[in-house]
Design a protein around this nucleic acid. Structure first.
Lengths: 258, 258
DNA sequence: AAGTGGTCTAGACCACTAT
DNA sequence: TAGTGGTCTAGACCACTTT
């Protein structure tokens, strides 16, 4: 698909290929990244100034600016007004893990199934009340689900939902709520966003039984709070997944997965 | 174009404040985000076209474009050429976890200490050879470190490094290698980047002993490979951290931590 | 005063999609 | 044909830092 990757073998500088399908600012990002990755500019070094880059690569200031901005929020460089643009050193704190693996586990809805284990209206105890910002004793919905991949149970999900008497939730809907649209990505959900937290844990008896694992086996617990469009916490819950079934990957610095 | 005020009818509820220290494109990002978060535009809805946004907020196409681009890589919208810009539904797969917690654990170098437990030159077995892309039997450096926070052991680190006879590593250097500059963020490292993977595990006897935990206690294993500027894998290793000492957080969708 | 990053304008052209 | 996103130009102004 990318057959016009030309070798610009000689000279320290590559140049912008105007005939390429790749826009100049993308090419410039690539050129600068390669120069950094090749060690031409090391951590702490200053990059050429923006006017210099303009004349070096024959592009307008705006195009240089776009490229720099991209490097900036890729974390490759830092800029300080009046001084210059500098190559950023590796910092572990900037590393991130993606949840893509979790989504992959549940992609392809044909291979995925949800079994609703339990659904009941409960009275919020102190813990639930605090998480959902309601009063103790108020109603909430408690759900337990088991998610299958190719017939194998892979995720155990427990969730507390705001109870809204004006909008009762149908059973069929509950299988989808916060899964459809969250996992598959299609169909709008009623949530505007949420916060996540991942913990290391071990399977308890029930969880081991449901997930076909052994008691005390290492596992991930993924805790979520989703908020509705009125900023109310509308869902609090957690997924349990066997540690030998999933792990989460990410990259650091200029490294791109190959 | 007509500069008549045809925006009186269904005008924007917010407008760009030219006197603000916040540049117009940032304000526009905020305005659109708030409208989405408030439910004015729901998942799947189409945003006003870029020319419409230009006249709505009296900014140039380039400014609108910058705002849209930001929303785009914030994951808030998706764009399809020829059709429009659409609000993106929540997708769990887009969630990310930050390693900030890990960096925080080791911030403030005054409270942090590194104890080198072991350092020896070894012959690479099959596993090490594969990870470092060297031949079996070749030399490599094996390190074991214990990292303390306020006197408490918090991280156990094992690492295999490329052995370079031309550049022997001093002991003092080893305490810093891949920690200084990776954690503290100052001082350039010799690595251009790396890949990370996080696993759920349980403490083994040695690890429990070192970290002051109990055997089989839940824990995280953070595996890393760092690459040098010649794209060689120069460091392979992993950190062990008690599960009750750390967890990793992140957000999803339009939610911002408050 | 000169250089640097940061921002913005007011158009232009292109490729794509729908009618 | 008209509308849409995507890109680009060739300047301009500002705030900041260094000399």
């Amino acid at each position: 698909m990318s057959k016009d990757e030309k070798r610009r073998g000689r000279g320290p500088e590559a140049s912008i290929d105007r005939g390429s399908y790749e826009p100049p600012y993308v090419q410039l990002v690539g050129i600068l990244r390669r120069q950094i990755a090749a060690g031409k500019f090391r951590a702490g070094d200053r990059l050429p100034s923006e006017p210099q880059l303009c004349s070096l690569y024959q592009v307008s200031p705006m195009t240089v600016r776009r490229a720099i901005t991209i490097l900036l929020d890729q974390g490759a460089v830092v800029t300080t007004p009046g001084k210059g643009t500098f190559v950023r050193p590796l910092e572990l704190g900037t590393g991130t893990f993606r949840l893509q693996e979790l989504a992959d586990l549940l992609a392809n809805s044909g291979r995925t199934a949800v079994r609703l284990l339990q659904t009941r209206v409960i009275r919020a105890d102190e813990r639930v009340a605090r998480r959902l910002s309601i009063k103790e004793g108020q109603r909430a919905i408690y759900l337990r689900r088991l998610l299958f991949r190719d017939g194998d149970p892979v995720l155990y999900h427990q969730e507390y939902l705001l109870y809204d008497p004006k909008r009762p939730i149908v059973e069929a809907e509950m299988e989808a709520t916060s899964l459809q649209g969250l996992f598959a990505g299609r169909g709008g959900s009623d949530f505007k966003g949420g916060s996540l937290r991942i913990e290391a844990t071990a399977l308890r008896e029930l969880e081991a039984d449901l997930l076909g694992g052994t008691v005390n086996q290492p596992a991930f617990r993924l805790i979520h709070i989703f908020y509705d469009y009125k900023d109310r916490p509308a869902s609090w819950g957690w997924f349990i997944c066997r540690g030998d079934r999933i792990s989460f990957g990410g990259t650091l610095g200029l490294w791109e997965e190959k």
